[in-house]
């Protein structure tokens, strides 16, 4: 019984390790884009923050009206907002 359990754990562990290796291999090989393949990523519209002022306005409004803030950048609004 103990041996069966041990074998089962070994099998699961080995399967997990193989899965992790496959995942890591896939991530390193499948994730990313070659330098000559980044035409779309080079667009201004693809920047993570296209309008910093608009983002700052949003962060400030939500900071002053909700109980949580931050995440994208530092929280806090520099105000004693009412």
């Amino acid at each position: 019984m103990k041996n069966e359990m041990r074998e089962s754990l070994w099998t699961r562990g080995a399967a997990g390790a193989v899965g992790a290796v496959i995942l890591a291999t896939c991530l390193s090989g499948c994730v990313g884009a070659a330098a000559w393949d980044r035409d779309l990523l080079a667009r201004k519209s693809m920047q993570l923050n296209t309008h910093p002022i608009v983002t700052a306005y949003h962060d400030h409004i939500y900071f002053s009206k909700e109980g949580s803030s931050g995440g994208r950048t530092f929280d806090g609004g520099g105000c004693g907002c009412n």
Binding site: V31, G32, L40, L41, M46, L48, G71, R72, D75
Partner: peptide, 18 residues
């Protein structure tokens, strides 16, 4: 961490503590 996922997709993951 900001990661180019592929030619069409850019992703960002942040952890914040204050």
């Amino acid at each position: 961490v900001t990661q180019v996922i592929n030619r069409y997709w850019l992703a960002q993951l942040n952890y914040s503590v204050g």
